[in-house]
Amino acid sequence: MTQLPPPSKVKLGLVIDLDTCVGCHACVISCKGWNTENYGAPLSDMDAYGADPSGTFLNRVHSYEVTPDEGTAKLIHFPKSCLHCEDAPCVTVCPTGASYKRAEDGIVLVNEDACIGCSLCAWACPYGARELDTAAGVMKKCTLCVDRIYNTNLPEEDRVPACVRTCPAGARHFGDLGDEDSAVSRLVAERGGMDLMPEQGTKPVNKYLPPRPKDTADEIDILAPYLAPVAGEAKGFVAWLDKALSALPGGAK
């Protein structure tokens, strides 16, 4: 059913810390691994060893350069996957009912048996969170590892999405963003967690924690003042050469 359910009390989602992410892509690989072997059709690769390889991924890490008005440019690694939006436009456009949002925990899923692969949901998603699998012909998206988080066959510490479990930097957090007292909600409140493209009106559940401002240290290089410049005023032949070359048309003055 592609009608969105009333907002659920439990809103499971991710909180991604852009201050901590080191851009190692481990979450990308663990996601691909788990979701190729488990829920639904495998995430296929096309021409994997050829000249033009491409494949289906549910999580991709971009890198952005941010140049402030003052100070140095910063490189920010930016993992992006489905944000499990409260007002998910990908769900309502689906003609078959394959795309749906779970009433109990807000996870957005695709019933692959009902998907006709029309791609309209991917058109409706502003975040690029959905990719049509070329081999299976059905739409793939992040399941929030629904087959891990409730899986009592797994040890308790593994009952989180594969990307969260694998992140070596602790940059990914999983929890209930509908509960104000949950660890993830407190983290969002403390760090000023933000929505991506709020103007699109999708009300994403996943939040991003902005990079913390960098502190500045005083001059700590105590030896630098003692290092006199090696090259002073040129003398002799070099001085003449410098003058002669500068005199030529287009020469440096």
Binding site: Y64, E65, V66, T67, A73, P210, P211
Partner: peptide, 8 residues
């Protein structure tokens, strides 16, 4: 934070 550019 500043001007954003897609780097990679």
């Amino acid at each position: 934070l500043g001007r954003v550019r897609a780097f990679e």
